[in-house]
Simulated scan of single mutants.
Amino acid sequence: MVSMGTSGVFARAYDELDLAVEVGFAGGRVIAVSFPERVPEDADDDHALLDRIGEYLRGEPDDFADVAVGLTVPTDRRGVLEALREVRYGEEVSVSRLTRLAALDDNDPDDLELVSRSLRGNPIPILIPEHRVQGGPYATPASVHETVRRLEGL
Rank of each mutant, 00 (worst) to 15 (best):
V2R: 13
V2C: 05
S3C: 06
S7W: 07
S7R: 13
F10L: 12
R12D: 00
R12G: 04
A13W: 07
Y14G: 06
D15H: 04
L17H: 15
L17C: 15
D18P: 02
L19E: 12
A20H: 12
A20G: 07
V21C: 10
E22H: 03
V23K: 04
G24C: 08
F25E: 14
A26K: 12
A26L: 10
A26Y: 04
A26R: 01
G27V: 09
G28K: 05
R29N: 01
R29D: 06
V30S: 03
I31S: 14
A32M: 13
A32L: 15
V33Y: 04
F35L: 15
F35K: 15
P36K: 01
E37G: 15
R38T: 14
R38G: 05
R38C: 13
R38L: 15
V39Q: 01
P40Q: 05
D44K: 12
D46R: 11
D46L: 10
D46P: 01
H47K: 12
L50I: 06
L50Q: 00
L50F: 03
L50W: 03
D51F: 11
D51C: 15
I53M: 15
I53A: 13
E55G: 14
L57V: 10
D62P: 13
D63M: 15
D63Q: 14
F64G: 08
A65C: 09
A65M: 09
A68R: 14
V69I: 08
G70A: 11
L71Y: 08
L71M: 07
T72R: 10
V73T: 02
V73A: 06
P74N: 06
T75E: 11
T75N: 12
R77W: 03
R78E: 10
R78C: 02
G79F: 02
L81C: 11
A83S: 10
R85T: 04
E86A: 08
E86S: 08
V87M: 03
R88L: 09
Y89M: 06
E92N: 02
E92D: 04
E92P: 00
V93S: 01
S94L: 08
S94W: 03
S94Y: 02
S94P: 00
V95F: 02
S96N: 04
S96W: 03
R97E: 08
T99M: 05
T99E: 07
R100G: 03
R100S: 07
L101S: 05
A102S: 13
A102M: 08
L104F: 14
L104S: 14
D106V: 06
D106S: 09
D108C: 10
D108S: 05
L112I: 05
E113P: 13
L114S: 12
R117Q: 09
R117C: 06
S118F: 00
R120F: 01
N122T: 07
N122K: 01
I124H: 01
I124R: 06
I126F: 09
I128G: 02
P129L: 03
H131G: 03
H131N: 08
R132Y: 06
V133H: 06
V133F: 11
Q134N: 13
G135N: 12
G135A: 10
G135M: 10
G136T: 06
P137R: 01
P137Q: 00
T140F: 08
A142E: 03
S143P: 14
S143A: 15
S143W: 04
H145F: 09
H145T: 12
V148G: 05
V148W: 07
V148N: 04
V148E: 05
R149M: 12
R149Q: 14
R150C: 11
E152P: 11
E152N: 09
